[in-house]
Amino acid sequence: MLSLLPTMSTKMRKLLLLLLLTFFYPSVKALGVNDLAISCPATLELEKIPLDLQKYRGKVIYLDFWATWCPPCKKSMPFQNALRNELHEQGFEVIAINVDEDSEDARKLLQEYPVDYLIAMDPSGQCPKQYGVMAMPSVYFIDRQGIIRFIHLGFRKRDEKEIRNHVMELLAENGEK
């Protein structure tokens, strides 16, 4: 193939370059631990305004990616709600971004099983793409400075202790690091 390079027309060379770029260039750099949590195109369900994570600076944020078709996501809801209600006064907030293609599915579920934490809708899937979500559900623990400190993938009953420990650790920090 490489021996053909000198014989190729400019158009063909450009095509080849485009092909190589498509294969090897990462489209979006996924966010990871120690990265600043950025806002993404999700809409807050109650206020019908775009989700702005800057607004929650100074609070410990539990950013959850969930969908109605994901059983562990639904299993985690009562735990998340209890944790949020227990620690809300200490500056803790749960923001759950729903990634169902049809947000109506989520609304129906939430009518049946209401929660107290914030729900945001992202049917386009841009938010999980930006955050590089690896599994469903995925939780991003964001500290008071807006930095992603831990990422938790999946949810099982035995994970509750670990999740609580992450939250307590971040709440214990005074926010002036």
């Binding site: 990634v99 293609e101 899937g125 793409k129 979500v133 995925s138």
Partner: peptide
């Protein structure tokens, strides 16, 4: 010959798209 090879490669590259974790609703 090159154009044909390119077409075949492009065709197969599109057919091997992966499904992201958040796209598994269907």
């Amino acid at each position: 010959l090159f154009n044909r090879t390119l077409t075949v490669v492009l065709f197969f590259s599109v057919s091997a798209c992966s499904v992201a974790p958040w796209e598994r609703g269907n």
